[in-house]
Design a protein around this nucleic acid. Structure first.
Length: 325
DNA sequence: AATTCGGGGTA
DNA sequence: TACCCAGAATT
């Protein structure tokens, strides 16, 4: 084992944050943590981790639940397909397989998550490359735009002998999360500073990927019926969750015709996604249908904002009780 | 290889 | 505002 590897492990032993899943043995619990952590910060994932495992403490509990129940527990965590994948996974296997190759075949597990579970839960010698590891290795070896394959090969070759691969993978990720930050990395505190070829030029490794977040205009139509609000099961975006009809502005006349209503504007709601900025006009109308209490369904955050904006309409009819807010 | 899928923190 | 987060699936 090389000096920098020893330095990293020593640093990790001293500085590992005490996270809820550290030291966890149950592979299913480890899987849930890893899926929740996909594109999600540790601090943000923790409350969902607790909530999810309290409700579904084992694969059997998840298997016995309906998808809507699972989504309700996942509500607010985002990337709702992850919940669907976990639910589908629970129907596919009796117990989690223990190898990277088999884990990779399960729904919702890609190269990172399969490697994380295989190494942390089962001790397999396989490198887990997430955004942290990509950044740490890019800087350590001064690589501007490493491809996924070469990054994985590089990380695989760096796995030290005689060290728990799960610990090693987590040490690399922890360094990226705490010290080797995307902006303003804390190089003076870094145990690998003396070995880092990219130090002093951290902005180049890896090269920031530029992305655009164009604005998208939509209309949300809140229809108030005799018993509450008309909800639909959403497709595409927010798939599986519920909400009021959401569509491009040019569809408004046709949508109003379908329901036999004329709507009026109640205001606007802004909602930012990673690659899109939604500007939603909230429109409302009284409607002859039934409707239901929306707060009993799993709703994306956007729909919470929309319904809150429509509160005057809902309260006016006195049909829909308010949530805590 | 490029897009799409949430929501929230940070500079 | 722009970028990023313990990524995966689809096109």
């Amino acid at each position: 084992m090389e000096a920098w590897q020893k330095a990293l492990l020593a640093w990790y032993r001293e500085n590992a944050r005490p996270l809820p899943w550290r030291g966890e043995k149950d592979p299913y619990w480890i899987l849930v943590s890893e899926v929740l952590l996909q594109q999600t910060r540790v601090e943000q994932a923790i409350p969902y981790y607790r909530r999810f495992l309290e409700r579904f403490p084992a694969l059997e509990a998840l298997r016995a639940a309906s998808l809507e129940e699972v989504l309700r527990v996942w509500q607010g965590a985002g990337y709702y397909r992850r919940a669907e994948h976990l639910h589908r996974l629970s129907q596919q296997v009796v117990a989690l397989p223990s190898s990277y190759r088999e884990l990779l075949r399960l729904p919702g597990l890609g190269p990172y998550t399969a490697a994380a579970v295989a190494s942390i839960a089962f001790g397999e010698r396989v490198a887990a490359v997430d955004g942290n590891v990509r950044r740490v290795l890019s800087r350590l070896f001064a690589r501007e735009s490493p491809k996924e394959k070469e990054l994985f090969a590089l990380a695989q070759g760096l796995l030290p002998e005689g060290v728990d691969p799960g610990v090693w993978n987590q040490a690399l990720m922890e360094l990226g999360a705490v010290v080797c930050l995307p902006k303003n990395p804390r190089c003076p505190e870094c145990p690998l500073a003396a070995f880092c070829r990219g130090k002093g030029d951290w902005g180049r490794y890896p090269l920031p990927r530029k992305r655009r977040a164009p604005e998208e205009r939509l209309v949300a139509l809140v229809l108030l019926g005799r018993k509450g609000v008309h909800l639909e099961r959403l497709q595409g975006r927010f798939q599986g969750l519920y909400g009021v009809p959401l569509f491009p502005p040019e569809e408004l006349p046709r949508r109003e015709a379908v329901f036999g209503v004329r709507s009026s504007s109640l205001g606007e709601v802004r909602h930012a996604l990673t690659h899109r900025r939604l500007l939603v006009e909230v429109r409302g109308a009284l409607w002859l249908g039934e409707g239901e209490d929306p707060w009993k369904r799993p709703l994306p955050k956007l729909m919470e904002k929309v319904l809150r904006k429509a509160l005057p309409l809902l309260a006016h009819a006195g049909v829909v009780p308010l949530p805590d807010a």
